[in-house]
Design a protein around this nucleic acid. Structure first.
Lengths: 262, 262
DNA sequence: ACAATAGTGTCTATGAGACAATATAAA
DNA sequence: TTTATATTGTCTCATAGACACTATTGT
């Protein structure tokens, strides 16, 4: 923290100036596969390369607000900025169920901060990475300094050469999502306000890349107190018995956790 | 990442300058209780208040290097800077077992980044918090901009008024340590290179603030493959059967996790 | 009727937690 | 001896995973 140390010859008033940016690992489900939002850079450095969306933090702007703003700009999501402040997209130091009405969907949490000297060829940039999860979002709209913005399957994105250290950040974001599904109720962030147990299972299967037994999964989820709450409504989609609709409950931590072996 | 957006009137060359600092939540065990390192500030703002140790990142200095440097300066720990680079104190994006010889002890990992406008009354400061764990360290030596540095029991520190948003950071650090003990082998970071199962159990009991059954704990730890490795040596301390000495093994994640209820 | 998905019931192996029993030291 | 700690063994209960079976729809 802002403690200087004259003993080491470091002057607090003459602190070194850094640029501070935010980068986003925005994940969503499209046709049962995990996708990440990537932009194609239209400016130097790395012109033409794919990169995570992001940008500089403005003076007086909070970090999470900058992340929400960038997400909104890139996805066209109706005011994700406002959402991050409580209504919908839940900010989460802890676990993102801020408001009582559990109509929350989506999730935005800080991931990690990257600040190696030289990670940006132009200047010293410290970038705070955020992880955003959301149900299927509209196609992104390019604009500004990017020539394209698209949802890319994560396995494709991971084998693509990304600008800066974005491959490292993306890897961290995906791993964070994978492990958090085990011991938190975060999976509901990928679902719309009302969803079926199958929807939820598809989230786990897509993020973990493995199949789960529908019967045991159903029992596990519905027997965890307040993980999901039955709405009473059902929905029928194609053949088969209609599925009950649920909304996410107040439970945030799953104990014991859901295992990811099978 | 460093993507500007002319469309929003933001100029990449004219990025806003921020001060970047690191703060440390340094935890250790003293007389079977969890302690945190606090300094008493000798400069404005918050002169006379207790605070987490920390300071500004220098130009060209990596974030984790700055954290290790501050830790070394405050604890007098023989070159913690060097330790963070591989030998002893294990840096950990993942889980801090970098070198093969498992003689590593201690742990340093990034915690979270705090950058609310106004968190520092002087100027806009973005602070990257680090969590440091170590076996019993020598008494800290004050110096520079602090008039005192001491190991304080965490329950005392949590009821103390701390400078800046350090109460929030401390809370996050302690909670991180508590939860990581459950599903990782991080507890060995609080132990010297060789330790007994009882030593390890005392770590859990101090961090979690609860008693564990010595018999079940012993069986759980020794039956988790490569969590701890028997050295063949024993140590006797007071009455009772001599205890076998172990060193930490390569296992980093515990599955199933150690539970923290009893 | 047949296929497909939703949801319930049952069985078993595994592991956590309780706790008896044994081993080896100091006082 | 008595006491204290280490370590092993046993028992029981809960549950994860395998999987049979019932329920309810579309074709």
């Amino acid at each position: 923290m802002p403690s200087s140390r004259p003993s080491t010859g470091y002057d607090p008033a003459g602190f070194a100036p850094f640029a501070v940016a935010v980068d986003l690992v925005a994940l969503t489900l499209r046709s049962q596969a995990l996708h990440v939002l990537l932009v194609t850079r239209a400016e130097d450095p790395f012109t033409g390369s794919q990169a995570l969306p992001g940008g500089f933090v403005r003076p007086g702007e909070d970090l999470v607000a900058a992340a929400a703003r960038e997400l909104a700009e890139e996805t066209g999501l109706a005011d994700a900025t406002g959402l991050a402040e409580g209504t919908g997209l839940a900010e989460a130091t802890g676990l993102g169920h801020t408001a009582e009405p559990h109509h929350t969907f989506g999730h935005l949490e800080q991931l990690a901060t990257y600040g190696s000297p030289g990670r940006d060829p132009r200047m010293r940039v410290v970038s705070v990475a955020y992880l955003a999860l959301a149900p299927r979002l509209p196609d992104p709209r390019p604009g500004g300094d990017v020539s394209a913005a698209d949802w890319v399957p994560v396995d494709v994105a991971l084998t693509t050469s990304l600008a800066f250290d974005h491959h490292t950040i993306l890897t961290a974001g995906i791993e964070r999502a994978r492990s958090k599904l085990e011991y938190t109720s975060l999976a509901t962030a990928f679902c719309p306000p009302e969803f079926t147990i199958s929807d939820l299972r598809h989230v786990y299967e897509a993020v973990w890349g493995s199949k789960l037994d529908p019967r045991n999964f159903h029992r596990k989820v519905t027997s965890t107190p307040s993980f999901v709450i039955e709405t009473g409504r059902t929905i029928t989609d194609g053949p088969g018995r209609p599925a009950a609709l649920y909304r996410s409950g107040p439970t945030t931590t799953l104990s014991p956790p859901l295992t990811r072996e099978p």
